[in-house]
């Protein structure tokens, strides 16, 4: 933290209602340390619309606009427009949505706002399913996952949507993945995003969910770290949709990551091998984009 010159001040109050070990809560704490008090957070329906607290309390020391599920990017665009018209170009507007609100129902509004070059940071805290409604599959849920809507032998047989590549295809000025297990890397990315004013910036945060994934809450950081170390969730940045930078090279097998979580406990060795091959394939694809 010293090398990033980030004040050791928190904008997340104790008393929030996140589950023990909630990755999304840790992500907010770290993000706001970087973004500071001149921040407005726009939150759609998601875990964070609960975590932030019921009327009349708020867990954050910055203003929050709660908005309808599909509207994060549109509402954030409107907030930005109002601040600009009032002459306030200093305040950072942050859309803060889950994977359902980003990959699925909010994707159209996000795509539109990025194409319009709206000046905000959009954060997707990704816990890989609709956790707030009780673990239903989203298009971010990875292959092999059991959820309440992909139960039993009907576990999810399709790949996770690659949201960062979808954003890169918009030629967004900055997009990056980040993990709560790599706080320095994550805060550096928030700082970079904050300083790149004038257009949209997108940060895809891997936010482990002990409740939904079936891991002990004290293993939340460990599981997030393993996702990076196995290349299941690579840490990288893309500038202008074309300039790729890799932040970490993993080399562990996927086996260990999957076997720690009850959402994957039904998988056979053969299934695990299939997933390992998918991870390898995606990793090679990413390395090709990063270049020599």
């Amino acid at each position: 933290m010293m090398q990033l010159n980030i004040p050791d001040r928190d904008y997340l109050n104790s008393g929030h209602v996140g589950c023990p070990g909630c990755g999304a809560t840790i992500a907010m704490k770290l993000a706001l340390r970087v973004l500071g008090e001149k921040t407005v957070v726009v939150i759609p329906a998601c875990c964070w619309s609960i975590i932030a607290g019921n009327y009349p309390q708020s867990a954050l020391k910055v203003p929050i606009l709660h908005t309808a599920f599909a509207t994060t990017a549109a509402a954030a665009s409107g907030v930005r427009a109002a601040l600009d018209m009032k002459g306030d170009t200093e305040t950072t507007v942050v859309g803060w949505a889950g994977d359902g609100g980003t990959f699925d129902i909010g994707f159209q509004a996000l795509s539109g706002a990025v194409e319009r070059q709206e000046d905000f940071i959009y954060v997707c805290y990704d816990n890989e399913a609709y956790m707030n409604t009780g673990v239903q599959r989203s298009s971010s849920t990875p292959y092999g996952t059991r959820t309440t809507t992909t139960p039993g032998t009907e576990w999810k047989k399709t790949r996770k949507k690659n949201i960062v590549e979808a954003l890169a295809a918009h030629r967004i000025s900055y997009t990056a993945t980040a993990s709560i297990a790599f706080p320095d890397d994550m805060m550096r990315k928030f700082k970079k995003a904050m300083e790149m004013k004038g257009g949209p910036r997108f940060i895809h945060v891997f936010a482990s969910c002990p409740t939904g994934w079936g891991v002990a809450s004290e293993l939340s950081i460990k599981i997030a770290r393993l996702a990076v170390q196995t290349n299941m969730f690579p840490l990288y940045e893309v500038e202008d949709g074309v300039k790729y930078t890799l932040n970490y090279k993993g080399n562990r097998s996927i086996d260990e990551y999957l076997k720690m979580q009850s959402r994957f406990k039904h998988l056979t060795e053969e299934d695990i091998q299939t997933i390992q091959e998918m991870v390898n394939e995606d990793w090679q694809l990413l390395l090709r984009k990063i270049g020599p």
Binding site: G78, M85, S111
Partner: peptide, 26 residues
């Protein structure tokens, strides 16, 4: 007119963005 005109990608976003802007106090 001294105003910002947002050409959004749907009516859903049109209303959502004016909700955002009105919440911003304009």
């Amino acid at each position: 007119m001294d105003a910002r005109f947002m050409c959004v990608e749907s009516e859903h976003s049109a209303m959502a963005s004016v909700i955002g802007a009105a919440s911003g106090g304009v």
